[in-house]
Amino acid sequence: MNDLGVMIVTGGSRGIGAATARLAGAAGYAVLVNYAADAAAAAAVAEAIRAAGGRAETARGDVGSEADVLALFEAADRMGRLAALVNNAGVVDQPSRVADMSLARLERMFRINTIGSVLCAREAVRRMSTTRGGRGGAIVNLSSAAAKLGAPDQYVDYAAAKGAIDAFTVGLAKEVAAEGVRVCAVRPGIIETDIHASGGLPDRVAQLAPSLPMRRPGSADEVARAILWLASPEASYSTGAILDVSGARAILP
């Protein structure tokens, strides 16, 4: 199996993160599966990677906590050279109009979905940048079709947090382009994962499927394959790119 270095997958215990971690392990990365609460689910992902002949460890941590982020990257350092970071960890909340949103909700939304990704990217650049003694690497951020569509009457705050990820991706990509670090993002549409249930809409995928351009949701594996490509040397001239994996849902008129 190829030795591609270490990949950190935040929020790697479920959904798109778990699919990405499994594919990364099969591709030859040593995978650090980050999780916030579900240790058993993260352990199952890591065990599946090891059972297939790969290397994987788990690390608990809330990406919205700087102390947890620092500990996460120290755990990655113990595994070897950091080659890739997938900023996948994210949250939604109950559907709400902006007029009814609390400060606590807004702070949580941006702390985890935006600030957490920036903190993780900061630590990755410190290790990857050739001007800091690194050997280069790739960062793939998770955006959302909501960043383009706005998610009115449900998740405008989530859409705004992901819109910030789009801007951050482009800015950081330009900032470190000459330092061997590529920064891209994937913008998923309606994907069959349990994030919808965590936002209070367990039937959201089934309800929306008939109205989607392809008449079906995407799968976590379909998004994960795009992430793996952007992280890989095959995407060596792609940086600042934001790839829609939305079945045409995020295409604006």
Rank of each mutant, 00 (worst) to 15 (best):
S232K: 01
G15F: 00
D93K: 07
S219L: 02
T130F: 06
I165Q: 02
M79D: 03
A104S: 12
M109Y: 06
E57H: 09
E123N: 00
S143F: 09
R97P: 04
L172I: 09
H196P: 11
A231L: 12
F110M: 12
A160P: 05
A48C: 01
S236T: 08
P253A: 12
G150D: 00
V223I: 06
A151F: 05
R50W: 14
E107A: 15
D38F: 08
R55F: 13
A39Y: 01
R204V: 07
E179I: 06
N34K: 14
V245H: 00
L228P: 08
V205W: 00
A104V: 12
F168R: 02
A75H: 14
G90K: 00
A84H: 02
R215M: 00
D38T: 04
S129R: 08
V245I: 05
A151I: 14
D244Y: 08
I251F: 12
I195W: 01
G90T: 13
T58N: 11
G25N: 05
M79Q: 09
C184G: 06
N87E: 09
A173L: 06
A231I: 05
V186F: 10
R60S: 08
G136S: 10
A185R: 03
P95H: 02
S144C: 04
I242F: 03
G5M: 07
A26I: 11
A26R: 13
A18Y: 04
E222K: 10
L70C: 10
A161S: 11
V156E: 13
A83L: 11
F110Y: 01
V186N: 02
S144M: 00
S246V: 09
A37Y: 07
V9G: 06
W229A: 08
M109W: 10
A164W: 00
T131R: 15
I227L: 07
V176M: 06
R216W: 10
A51M: 08
D153I: 03
R60Q: 09
A99G: 14
A27S: 15
L72I: 14
E179Q: 14
G171I: 12
M101E: 09
A161W: 03
R78D: 01
I242M: 12
D68G: 09
V156K: 10
A206V: 07
R215L: 06
G199W: 08
G133W: 12
R216Q: 14
A160H: 09
I195C: 03
A138L: 05
M214C: 06
V86E: 11
V125M: 02
A159G: 01
G137N: 10
G80Y: 05
G5A: 07
A177K: 08
R126Y: 01
